[in-house]
Design a protein around this nucleic acid. Structure first.
Lengths: 343, 343
DNA sequence: GGCAAAATCCAAAGCGCTTTGAGACCGCTA
DNA sequence: TAGCGGTCTCAAAGCGCTTTGGATTTTGCC
């Protein structure tokens, strides 16, 4: 069933039917109702490709999945996508995923533009000085960055958590508990979010007159085994930390595993704190009461995905007044993995 | 840059240029080379929408993400997608994601067909008698099922792990170690994969003359807190199991967490075995040596995604002779979480 | 050299939609 | 009754590509 068939069936022109379906004012309410009714019962859906060709617009948002490094193929990423896809679906948009080697990513954006495949893209995992922003701006492809570059000029659309503030708060929380040797198991510090978390951690320590010990700092892909390895290495130090701050709950899980293997309990022998993205696979179901119950800085990455979708769609449809950033504050949640330092 | 511009720039007709680009034999090698060269330097990409309109074919594969239940928005799903998207990218296909309530899924497929949005779909999480297969067959939309329905007639394309065999093997392994009280922390048994795992577990016990104790069986969404809760509940039984078999490494992690909290060690006090999908966020990096090291039945879900993509593309392009299933055997991996039962 | 066959190339139609520019019809006023 | 603004509808062009059917040139062979 296409427009032509539908309109002859209705005894109307294609123009009228198209206008009726797209809510143009030139068509009477009576006609519109008749058209909508017929379209529904004939199960008619306009072809997005044809509409795209005619209008130049496409309701598809692209995301690039970097391959090789499994950095992105992780629960953080998938929860973000889950949220975003809900946002898209609500607005009649679809999500297009394309796998690419990291060095191919620029080429994918060029392809998106010259083939007109998508109406906009979401940029994942921004770095301190990320060439993708300039590229997308010069390509004229609407985009939203999940995170920030950290460069001076942030006059592009982004959505981010206040990572510096979050980690300053977390570190201060541990300091108030009496801890002075606090380890940081951070993400890759070329990434802005990790750099900012590091900055918050450093600031808190310095403001309290505590020294920064490089031996207590780790930076890598935030996977579970990394949290484990880092913790093992911390425990083997001559002067091990009494508190550990993790950049992801995945690392925190590895951390707890390492502690357990050494007969130590989080919140008893060592305080453990983490950033909590509220990953869905860690959430207890309705009738289950327990969860890891980490003391954490919390901000749902799924919500971030949903909101990102909304913002990007506004940008694409020109509803957004000023293309600028949105910064969320993480919430401090007290759990069972921290306790005052015992003398 | 479009075909018309490119062809006038080359002094050729659109026909010739199109044929040159699409590898038709009617064009001389010399001309083809010239065309390809020009296309490359002009950064020309054909519009997929226009090609779609002209040919009726589209190199896009759809996936539906069920919302509300977070069943699918989990590391298993995202690793599958990661693998699939690589398979698509290698063949010039793209992946389209659409979020939908479970009861809307049928409607999405109808939309896909009538709007011609995708060339095929992947069906996730098949149930014992899944209405989606019949629907897709009657819609004429090419598809591949990740898993199986379990119905008698399996004459549709699917890719699955031999779940029954895997869990029979796992259970037998534990039995050989001397265990007689073996718990099963399974997925939702309305899902085929979980039902088949249960069947394998039951078969092994029965073949060894062991009794099936319903108290040792759990079935739910495979998330971490579920593994934790189930284990706690097992430990509180009057006659707790000496071995626990988990359907997912996520559950196994929750299981280990529960054991640790009760001062028990996997592989020492209780044997723990699991199905291991080789989830990427649990894989150690190059220079890290340790991993949870579960004794497990292993089959990479990411590989499954990649292979599924290839098979589906073959089906769509008519390269597949007989639309039928592919069954992978899981591999037994001996880790540190199992040991002989001590008397 | 001549002629058929093979090799190249082309003009134009068509995919399903949107949208321009214009026509038909209505009820009014002058 | 003629004229006018409004309301509703339409025919046709065009988006960028593929592909049919045909034209033109080149090649191979006697």
């Amino acid at each position: 069933m296409n427009l032509k068939e539908l309109s002859t069936q209705l005894g109307l022109s294609q123009t009228t039917v198209s206008r009726a379906l797209n809510g143009f004012p030139e068509v009477s309410e009576k006609t519109r109702e008749r058209v909508l009714q017929a379209a529904r019962s004939a199960n008619y859906r306009p072809s997005p490709s044809a509409a795209h060709l005619a209008t130049g617009k496409t309701k598809v948002i692209g995301h690039v999945i970097p391959t090789t490094q499994h950095r992105m193929i992780n629960p953080h990423f998938s929860d973000f996508l889950a949220g975003a896809s809900e946002g898209y679906a609500a607005a009649g948009y679809d999500m297009l995923l394309r796998a690419a080697e990291p060095e191919e990513e620029a080429g994918v954006y060029e392809d998106f533009v010259s083939s007109k495949r998508v109406g906009g893209v979401v940029v994942h995992g921004p770095r301190l000085n990320d060439s993708r922003i300039g590229l997308l701006q010069s390509l004229g492809l609407p985009f939203l960055v999940h995170g920030r570059t950290g460069a001076e000029d942030e006059s592009y659309p982004w959505l981010d958590v206040n990572n510096k503030e979050a980690f300053e708060t977390a570190t201060n929380y541990l300091i108030k508990l009496g801890h002075t040797r606090i380890a940081l198991i951070n993400g890759l510090e070329e990434m802005t979010f990790a750099a900012q978390r590091r900055a918050g951690y450093d600031a808190a320590l310095q403001n309290s007159g505590l020294s920064l010990d490089p031996e207590l700092n780790f930076s890598a892909d935030m996977v579970e085994p990394y949290g484990y390895e880092a913790t093992i290495s911390l425990l083997n130090q001559s002067n091990p930390p009494t508190a550990i701050l993790c950049s992801s709950i995945l690392c925190a899980m590895g951390c707890v595993r390492a502690l357990a293997e050494n007969g130590m309990r989080p919140g008893k022998d060592v305080s453990v704190m983490t950033f909590d993205d509220v990953l869905s696979f860690l959430q207890p179901s309705r009738n289950q009461t327990s969860s890891p119950a980490f003391t954490s800085m919390r901000s749902s990455i799924q919500d971030a995905g949903r909101r990102s979708a909304e913002i990007l769609i506004d940008v694409i449809e020109g509803k957004s007044s000023q293309p600028t950033g949105v910064c969320w504050e993480a919430e401090l949640v007290e759990g069972r993995t921290t306790s005052p330092l015992r003398p």
